[in-house]
Design a binder for these strands. Sequence first.
RNA 1: GGACCCGUAGCUCAGUUGGUUAGAGUGUUUCCUUGACAUGGAAAAGGUCACAAGUUCGAAUCUUGUCGGGUCCACCA
Length: 879
Amino acid sequence: MNELPKRFDFKSIDQKWSTYWEDQEVFHARQQTGKEPYTIVIPPPNVTGILHMGHALNNTLQDIIIRYKRMNGFETLWMAGTDHAGIATQNVVEKALAKEGKTRDELGREEFLNRLWQWKQEYGDTIIHQLKKLGASCDWQRARFTMDDEYSQAVNLTFVKLYDKGLIYRGQYIINWCPRCHTALSDEEAEHEETQGALYHFRYPFKDHPDQYVIVATTRPETMIGDTAVAVNPNDDRYQKFIGKKLVLPLMHREIPIIADEFVDPAFGTGAVKVTPAHDPNDFEMGQRHNLESINIMHPDARLNEKAGEYQNLDRFQARKKIVEALRNLGLLEKIDDHTHAVGHCYRCHTVVEPYLSRQWFVKMKPLAEPAANAVRDGEITFYPNRWEKVYLNWMDNIRDWCISRQIWWGHRIPVWYDDEENIYVALTEAEAKQKAQEKRGKEVSLRQDPDVLDTWFSSWLWPFATLYWPKDNAELKYFYPTASLFTASEIIFFWVARMIMAGLEFMGEIPFKDVYIHGTVRDDKGRKMSKSLGNALDPLEIIEEYGADALRFSLIMNSGQDLFISKDKFEIGRNFANKMWNAARLILLNVKSHDHSYDLAKICEQENLDLTCRWIISRFYSTLEKVSLAIEKYRYSEAENEIYDFFWGNFCDWYLEMIKDRWTEDVVQYVTLHILEESLKMIHPFMPFVTEEIWSIIHPQEQAISLQNWPVLEKQLIDESFEKDMTLIIDIITAVRQSRAQWNIKPNEEIIVNLATNLDDLKSLLTANQSILIKLCRIKKLSIADDLPEEKNAAKGVVAVVKYAIPLTEVVDIDAEKRKMLKQITDQKKAAENLSKRLNNKEFVKKAPDHVVAADQERLESLQSKIKELEDVITNLN
RNA sequence: GGACCCGUAGCUCAGUUGGUUAGAGUGUUUCCUUGACAUGGAAAAGGUCACAAGUUCGAAUCUUGUCGGGUCCACCA
């Protein structure tokens, strides 16, 4: 056996195995008959992305289950790829251009797109390389990009289909406008934040009585330039008499009417609202109801336009100041109140978004949302943890139409063409549009394509099937779709998860995945979100460099119950555990001389002479394996890791390897030890792929990689609790002796005697021969042999049990304490039984309560009664 | 305004249907270590399970309320 280094040297090993896996195409999925597919699609990271802790967590979770399923004989496909991330990517390239002193308009559309593709070519795969470092077992050969040709065709097709179905329409509405990105945003892309602002109260004079006025309140004074009415509630006594009267809009000197609308809340502000149909969604609706003019007062960059007169070309916030000043000078400023309210910000550049009237394309969501909501309601799709279903359903039930056009260049161009009469042709290609135009117009006309592109998410929502070359009818699509599970953060539920479900049902007629696992957010140790701008982000690549990929993965999962609070030292756990495995393997390989696999574990276990130590570790391994498998299936990863950690470190290393340390000459010991190590490696492999692969390759240089080995078969018959109980008892006693050695003056030789015990019979006879130790043990557990012994707390566990075993050997034990305890239990449980039967005899209760409640009560009563009997029997025997 | 989550050891968290003496890791203190591992081993200290009331023979666990921390949704100008 080769000499292994003292410490696990992850640096050389991580790289070695990533390369190996890729070269050997270990993760490449192929359609196979007789094998069940298991598919996951990666949440495609943005091409602008660099790996952060959120990615590390997200992809580790996926990798664990995909490796687990692969080892369990599934044909696993983990679809890889990246998202073109429209606005984000365009922003990055625009910034680079700005450094050269250029703008995209100067460059022109075509040249700008060339620059974007160039950028994508150069940097777009950065994150994919980083994911490989993490050990993510994606099918990299299949990696897709949302702007691949086939993918783009799929996007166009869905647009056409939805349009033909009447689910896509174009119209003038108030949308969220980002003045910095110069584009419309969907409601989800506008992030609302509580902001400390002001509520300005202005006086709008009456036309006929310039000395009298109505006071209106607003948070955005500059919008008054576009006011076309003032609205009051029709039932508001204060204002009823003014309805229909005219006011004069200050500064603009425009006549505006006072209208009545139910929308107005008399209790808020002054009860009178200035109405700006072009710059507020509610005002827009009121404008529609009352046929008001909509006056757009802003340029796309939020400077005021020519409608603003002397305020023209001022930025909205500068204009705000000036207008307030002007009104103050006119004596029309009533007051300014402090006011906190939610203000929308662009989710990409964090600029305050402007409600802006413009013509955009929308998807009608209600018809799509209904089946998607039902899929979750009916349990076809399950969220883990379950509480997210409520969040999802709440959104689905209150869904609003989706604004899908973006005024940027990077993305899928909207497949719509217009002719000189503004007729609309929706088609898959320009040629098809031309043909349609020809038919309609009876002559050839020149067409121009809609300049806008589609929302990034309008392509991402097709990800689970467009990556498999939908709409092409192909066998792989049938084989790998629908996918099994989806892993993502809660922020993406509305953007992506919900819409994928809609798209899956609409275009494939089938849900895109069965399980949705929502993981927590990675935060720093103070609970703040990790972000570059805050400077509190831990870089996963640095952690990999310093602690190893396995350590990063293991530690992240260990902390992944809800939100994760991560600081650097957290990664020591994973590093130390990897090192522990390494050194356990080192010890074993130093001592195991032969790799004799002719043994059969089941047969060995049947042999009577297999000692408790070996039998125990075998049983412990398989009960751990069972728990770990179950935990993975239920997406309870941190639980699985805890089981692994306890078993491997707490049982296998701390006890088992210590107990067999003088028995390496025994063939059976060698076999059992190596076997448990190998099976443990397989069990741990999904969590820590690199160390396990390395150790495995040292043990089996000729065999194929552990990534391709089968998950250990659960030998249920080898799980035997009685062995685990016996060993637990021995461990408890040994621990008790150690813990109390000072207090009860346990001599070194006595401790050695106890340590020698490797099975219960041993221990009993050892204690029989050395009754002084037994007496000390009794003392530790307060089972006093003399009344004057002090009662100590924190006595070790388990000693009471050995005392029970030892009862025939000695008279020292006070069994009265045991008896008293049992007697109390009996009275308690009798009382419980009495109450239960009272309730069951109550006809009212039996009638009213649901059947299962009554049944449960009955069952409990029976179990109580049998327990009481059992206890009474024990007591009789004691007497 | 609506919905959801969390308060357990100094810190980070387990505690799966209520059931013996509430557990880990980390930090602190003590001792050990010379062929698996100081990224190690053995041990000590440290908790009225946020608070209050209720249900129960029995509550960290179930119910209600209070306080504290967090998240998401919502058109209050």
